[in-house]
Design a protein around this nucleic acid. Sequence first.
DNA 1: TTGAAAGCGCTAACAC
DNA 2: GTGTTAGCGCTTTCAA
Lengths: 352, 352
Amino acid sequence: MVVPMNEILGKRAGRKRRRMQRVTMQSVAERAQVSPSTVSLFLRRPEAVTAATGRAINDAIEELGYVPNLVAGGLAAAASRAVSIIVPSVRNAFFAETVAAMQLELGKERLQVMLGHSEYSDREEENLVRTALSWAPSAIVLTGQSHSVGTRKILAGGSTPVVEIWELGGQSIDMTIGFSHEKVGRTAAEYLTGRGRRRLAFLGARMQEDRRANTRAEGFEQAAREAGAARVEIVGNPARAGVELGGVLLRQALDQFPDLDAIACSNDHIALGVLFECQRRGISVPTDIAVVGFGDLDFAASCIPTLTTIRPPGDLIGTEAARVIIKHVQGDRSDSHCVIDTGFRLIERQSA
Amino acid sequence: MVVPMNEILGKRAGRKRRRMQRVTMQSVAERAQVSPSTVSLFLRRPEAVTAATGRAINDAIEELGYVPNLVAGGLAAAASRAVSIIVPSVRNAFFAETVAAMQLELGKERLQVMLGHSEYSDREEENLVRTALSWAPSAIVLTGQSHSVGTRKILAGGSTPVVEIWELGGQSIDMTIGFSHEKVGRTAAEYLTGRGRRRLAFLGARMQEDRRANTRAEGFEQAAREAGAARVEIVGNPARAGVELGGVLLRQALDQFPDLDAIACSNDHIALGVLFECQRRGISVPTDIAVVGFGDLDFAASCIPTLTTIRPPGDLIGTEAARVIIKHVQGDRSDSHCVIDTGFRLIERQSA
DNA sequence: TTGAAAGCGCTAACAC
DNA sequence: GTGTTAGCGCTTTCAA
C-alpha cells in the first residue's frame, strides 16, 4: 500500500504559519539527541539531569541560539512567570522606588514585571486587575488596601496570590506589606507638639483620591488633639501634589490661620514648596514655623533649611514583596496572609 | 463491541490538572450555542458577526464571567499583546514620565507593559532584551541608541519591532523617537553666551554610563567654544545624580575655576543643588553665576530663583512610541525605521 | 457569517 | 535519569 508523501508529513507543510519560531525546544532536543522533556527538565532543574546530558543540551542551546518561549511555558504550566504590579503612578517617586526594587529582585528569578497605573482610581484598578488576570500571573501586587468591591470579589475567588503594599491596618486580601499611615501622622504630630508647637496644620493634596494621605492627616489631627494642641487644621487642595502646590497650600493655610507655628505636609514636594514660600515671605523656618515632610526625597537633605521628614521604606517594601512572591512561586505557601510591618523612620533635620 | 467508557471520554478524566481555568472560550461558546472560533472572532472583530450572535456571546460572557486567557492567545497568535519597555531606571523622573504615558496609551489597546531596568548597563540591557524576546512581545522599547553588539545582533535578526526612545542622531535599529542631546547642550551654551557669559562650566553625574548626559556636555562645550567663550569646563562626578551632588559639583568646579559666571547642569536635580549651594555661599544667581538645568522637573518653576531649564518632552516621547507600536500591531508597517524628532524647549526663568 | 480542525511551544504526570 | 504522551486555551486557515 502506497501512502502519499504529504500524508506522512502531515498537512502541516501545506499550511502557512505566520511567523514560525526558528529554534524550538524540539530542535534543541534533536540536536542534543535527547527528548524535549529532558530539555525542559534541564532548563527548570539542571541538577535533575546527568552532567553529560546537561552539557549536550547546553551546547545545543548555544549552537542554535535557542530562546525559550515563556508564553508557551506559561500556558502549559497554567501560570506565567509574570508578576503584575498595579500602582497609582510610577511618576510618584515612592512607587517608582518600590517598582524598581521589585523588578530587580524578581528579575533574578526570571519573573517578569507587568506594570499598570490606576491613577488613584479604584475603577481603573479593577480594570487593570481583570486584564492582569488574563495573563495568569504568578502574583498580583496592589497598592494600598482600599479597592472596589469588584476587585475584592475577583481576587478573593481566584487562586492568584495578591500582595498589597504601602499600607497596613485595613482589610487584607492576602499578603500585606507596608506601614501604618495613621502612625506616620501621629508621629509627625507628636514630634511637633513635643517640641512645644501648639498651632498645627496638615497640608495635603487630592486627599479624596489619596486615601493614604488622608489617613496620615487623620492620625495627625487625632494625636495633635490628644497632645493638647491649641489648634489643629487640615488644609487640602484637589490639585496634584507638587512643589508649586506647597506654596499655594501655605498661603491658603496662613490666610485662614495666621498664627500657625507648625506644618506637616502630606509629602516632601509640598514641604519644599512650603519652604520656598516661607523664604519668599520672610518667614523663618523653624523659628516661626516648623515644617515636617513625608518621603525623604532626594532634596530633603540638601534644601535650606534641610527638611525634617518621615521616610517610608519604598525599596524595602519592594524587596519584601518580591521575596514573598518568589517563595510562593517556589511552592512555599507559609507567607499566605502574612502582614509585614516595614515601619518608617523620622529623620530629624533643621526644619523642625 | 463494547467500548469502555473511559476510553470514550479519553484519559483526561484520569489526569489531574493543577489549576483548570474555570471559564474558557469553549464554555462561552457552548452557552451561546456557537463554535469557539466564532467567539474568538467576535472578541477580536465584533462587527464580523451578526448582531444576534454577538448578543448571545456577550450574554454568555457576562453570565459566565469569562476572562480571556491572553497567554493562550499569545501562543496561538505567535505574538503576545505585551510590549517590553527597558529603561535605565524608572526612579529617574524622565523615564517614569515616558513609561506612564506609554502605559496609558498602550493600555487603551489592551497592550500590556512589561518593564525592565538596565541600570545604565549595556550588558544588563542585553539580558533584558533576551528575556523580553521570550515573551514574544508585540514590540520592544529601548532607551537610547547605544547598545551592546549582542543586543543589536539579536534585534536585527528578529522580526520584533524595536523603538528606541530619548535619543536621536545615532545608529537606529528600527524606529526612533527622541531629540538631539547634542543640540540640548548647544542650546544651553548658546543661551548663556548670548547673555554675555564667558566662563562656563557643565556639571554632570556618572557621565561614563549616561551617554546622553555626555552628549549634552559635548554639544555644550563645542557651542561655547564656537561662541568664543573664554573658558569652558566639564566637571563630572561618578556619583548618582542628585540634589546633594549638585552642591558637591559646584564646590568642585569653583575650587578649580573660581571665576565661572555660568553653569549648565546635566539635570535639574543637580541644578537645584547648585542653587542651594549658591545660597549657602552667598553667591547671587543669576547676577554672579547663571544656572541652566535640564528636565523642567516639578520644582523648577517654584525654587528660588526659579530655574531656567530645558524641558525634554518625556510624555510626548511615550505617547508617540505607543502610537507607532499600536499602528504596527494593527498591521500598518508604514512607520518602520521612522525617526521622529520630538524636539525640546528652553524654559526661560530667573536663574539665567 | 459560521464551524471544523490543526496546531502554537511548552510542561508535567507517568512509565520505563 | 529519560522518554512518552496528552494536553494548556486560544487563533487561524479553510471549507461550508
